[in-house]
Simulated scan of single mutants.
Amino acid sequence: MTTSIDKLIIGNKVFNSRLMLGTGKYKTPRDAHESIQASECEIVTVAIRRLPTNLTHDSSSFLNTLNWEKLWLLPNTAGSQTAEEAIRMAFLGHELACQIGQEENFFVKLEVISDPKYLLPDPIGTLKAAEFLVKKGFTVLPYINADPILALHLEDLGCATVMPLGSPIGSGQGLNNLANIKIIIENAGVPVIVDAGIGAPSEATAAMELGADGILLNTAVAQSKNPAQMALAMNLAVQSGRLGYLAGRMEKKHYANASSPLDQISKS
């Protein structure tokens, strides 16, 4: 386990878990529940477009079945093709957070995606929406391409994190943008959450070993043969990667170095 002082801080909130989980694409609600529990995540993201406008009038909604005393809602503007759409979705997200008793929750996962084939985020629309929402008091977590300069611009605007994609969303291709993610991590003054493309626990570990502050994923768990088991694997992978990063990797060498040197044996 990570140390008690190693917390993830986003905006004014402190979290123990560095794994965030999406709620879409599960075959059954039971799979989603069991996966959230196994992951030990504290942040769950929900696409605002998929939710009823009034949860109090829809007792069957998935959100009403979750324990919001232990979980923090991260409304997601997925499906927004323009900055204006994303801004509207962000305000709806806050209204939904209020309905589950999180009146102080102004978190929003900002997605502006105008590309229907590869679902790559629109950098200009994201910057525009982020600037507006930050000024309105939102805690903005922007989903972006692995662009180090864009990440710095969003941080300068006041975003609480930057969330570069490892590879296209839902693709399971892994960390195709590793070099740029590394640059983002080196330069960022806010948490870096790797979001999208991770398909296996080893990839989550690799991102965390690099120094990422957290991982957000959905499809890798929801579309696995055993979602709850994969959620547990991702949970352990994130913890393992974080511990490895904090411990500090040994220096690579160009030659062999015996773990039991002969000179020590001869002296014994």
Rank of each mutant, 00 (worst) to 15 (best):
V44S: 09
V44W: 05
V44L: 06
V46S: 15
V46W: 15
A47C: 02
A47T: 00
I48E: 05
R50S: 14
R50G: 11
P52Y: 10
P52H: 08
N54F: 03
N54Y: 06
N54K: 13
T56E: 09
T56A: 09
H57M: 15
H57Q: 15
D58K: 13
D58N: 14
S59N: 11
S60R: 10
S60F: 03
S60G: 08
S61R: 03
F62T: 08
F62E: 05
F62D: 05
L63S: 03
T65L: 13
L66H: 02
N67S: 15
E69Y: 07
E69H: 09
K70I: 01
L71P: 06
W72E: 11
W72K: 14
W72G: 11
W72F: 09
L73N: 02
L74F: 02
N76I: 01
T77W: 06
G79P: 02
S80T: 01
Q81W: 04
Q81P: 09
T82A: 09
A83S: 12
E85V: 02
E85D: 13
A86G: 07
I87L: 06
R88Q: 11
M89T: 07
A90N: 00
G93R: 08
E95R: 12
L96F: 02
A97L: 09
A97H: 10
Q99E: 07
Q99F: 02
I100G: 02
G101N: 03
Q102R: 08
E103M: 13
E103V: 15
E104M: 13
V108M: 09
V108S: 04
K109G: 05
L110F: 00
L110A: 00
L110E: 01
V112T: 00
